[in-house]
Simulated assay, not measured.
Amino acid sequence: MADNATVQVLLLGDCGCGKTTFLSRLKTPKPPTETLQEIEISLLKDHDQPFLYDIRFSKKSFRVEVYDTASPNQHWSSLRPDLVILAYDVSNRATLDSLKGWRSDITRYFQRGSGERIPIMMLGLKRDLREENDQIIYPQEAYRIAQELHCDRYAECSAISGELIAEAFEDIAKMAAMTTTETGAQGEGGCTVI
């Protein structure tokens, strides 16, 4: 991969699942003591897209352009992303259930040729809101769904508490770095858990 390459990442998931808060936390890391009101003030705005992140990973420098969307009617279907992230809220089962539809859209818009497959990561957000109740989504269940959706990686984190955010972003950076190599970022089958 050449230094200063650009990798396009498309972040898909239902409205309200935490995508913008996640991206904002990556852009301006704040200590976990920050109030929710302060976080809302620092949120990235849709008109600022793509959100840019300059990364140095494994002795390589590159730029990641992230497009964040929750609407299938937006311009995202005309993009040519190198990597797609499917996001859901770990405290909201409906956002997990809708990933199947998002995954179908990825196939429809980005996998045109025989054997062509774009690398996909499934990302659980709002980990801090996971509570014991009848709607709880355990990581094991989400990992199983990631496998069923043929995702290459699974991770979860909390933008509010900061829990596992660095690890999730490192895995995104690793997949992004691999997208322009000969082998690409696709896994050998199965799904890696972070």
Rank of each mutant, 00 (worst) to 15 (best):
M1Q: 06
A2N: 11
N4A: 11
N4V: 05
L10D: 00
L10F: 03
L10A: 00
L12N: 02
G13W: 01
D14I: 00
G16M: 05
G18S: 12
T20F: 01
R25T: 04
K30A: 14
P31V: 09
P31Q: 12
P32L: 02
P32Y: 09
T33H: 14
E34A: 15
T35G: 04
T35C: 10
L36M: 14
Q37R: 13
E40A: 14
L43D: 00
Y53I: 05
D54L: 05
F57G: 05
K59Q: 15
V64Y: 00
V64L: 14
T69A: 01
S71E: 12
N73Y: 13
Q74W: 10
H75S: 14
S77D: 14
S77H: 15
R80F: 13
R80T: 15
P81Q: 06
D82V: 07
V84E: 02
L86G: 00
A87S: 15
S91A: 15
N92G: 03
N92T: 09
R93E: 06
L99G: 09
L99D: 01
G101K: 14
W102L: 03
W102V: 01
R103E: 06
Q111I: 08
Q111V: 09
G115I: 06
P119G: 06
I120W: 02
L123F: 03
G124E: 01
E131N: 13
N133K: 01
N133G: 13
D134P: 00
I136P: 00
E141V: 15
A142D: 03
A146R: 06
L149G: 05
A155Y: 08
E156K: 07
E156Q: 12
S158T: 12
I165W: 07
E167C: 10
D171M: 14
I172V: 12
A177G: 01
T181W: 01
T183I: 10
A185T: 08
G189T: 09
C191M: 04
C191T: 13
T192S: 13
T192P: 05
T192V: 14
V193I: 14
I194S: 06
